[in-house]
Amino acid sequence: MISLLVDYWRFIIGCISYLTHWFGVKCPSEARIEGKVVIITGSNRTLGKETALELARRGAGKIVLACRDLEAAKLVAQEIQSETGNLNIVPMYCDLSSFRLIKQFVDDFISTNDRLDILINNAGISNGSTQRKATIDGYEEHIQINHLGPLYLINLLKPLLIKSSISCPSRIIFVTSSAHRCMLRFNIDNLNSTSFYHPSICYCKSKLAAELISTHLAPKLIEKNVTINTLCPGGVYTDLFTRYPTVDRYSSILCPILQSLLRTPKMGSQTIVYCAVEPSLDSVTGKHFMDCRQTLASSLARDKNLAEKTYQLSINLIKKSVNQF
């Protein structure tokens, strides 16, 4: 009971920070990442794009824009190259809604790269659909794109992350959300939302699942000199909001209001950049960040038993659709 009250209080405080840009912060670290190879999923717009832009300024050896919209990614790559002078910006096709296409992306990446220092799982959806939508693999969209897809990507790239961690720990960064705190209970048997579906609950559930994966993997990966941390970028105005019917219907009224209340993508990217570059985080793993500071994820997200069950169930779901894991 006490833990629930604490989570409620943290959720209220988080909402205040989440819903106003006045709490926005600037990444306090001036560190550079000369020569490091970075993958950022969903980097053709908003948070991912701003993160790629800043990491390019900080000397990244290569930044792979792993995106479903390859043409948009090509334009963003040109924009970043022009603005920063860093020519090592590579757009690649990656669709987290298909395990086959995730494997294809990893095969293509490994064929031309012998190292990976930082993996930023940024891509995600919140589709707002009142009807449950399934991916080509048969899983509810939120849970595959926000959780199962990134987990599969981590496992396929894990050997390369470990190989690259000899001199300095490799990093996995998971962009989640304070929305994971909305889940006060977690029915793991309905992970795929087959018995009950609501878009907002599915979104929150997928973000909690990502937090639980970090909790489970952190102690195992650190043994291989790889860290994994999660973060909430705060309330950021992105096109995700227009996916909700009410917002879309009254966009001329609601969008300007949301833009005035929420953070810009540049503000939201600051904690992602911090987690990617800050030297003092070299050995920090299994933690949650917001506003460039370490904070506690919800008590559910830190439940090790639940984390192990979620991981094992997620692995089994993926194995039903793929031959290699």
Rank of each mutant, 00 (worst) to 15 (best):
D7R: 03
L19F: 14
C27H: 02
V37A: 12
N44S: 15
R45M: 12
K62D: 11
V64L: 08
L65C: 13
E71S: 14
A72N: 11
K74V: 14
A77G: 13
A77W: 02
E79P: 08
S82V: 06
S82F: 11
T84M: 08
L96G: 14
F99G: 01
F99D: 02
F109G: 13
F109C: 14
I110E: 12
T112G: 04
L116S: 12
D117W: 01
N121K: 02
S126I: 11
S126G: 15
N127R: 03
S129I: 00
K133G: 02
D137F: 02
H147M: 07
L148M: 03
L151H: 06
Y152K: 06
L157A: 15
S165W: 15
C168R: 13
H180S: 02
M183N: 12
F186Q: 01
D189V: 04
N190A: 07
F196D: 04
Y197T: 12
H198P: 03
Y203K: 09
D239I: 02
L240T: 07
R243E: 13
L262P: 15
T264C: 05
E278N: 02
S280I: 01
S283P: 00
T285A: 08
G286I: 02
M290P: 04
D291S: 13
A297M: 06
S298F: 00
S298M: 05
D303L: 03
A307Q: 03
I318P: 13
Q324D: 09
F325L: 14
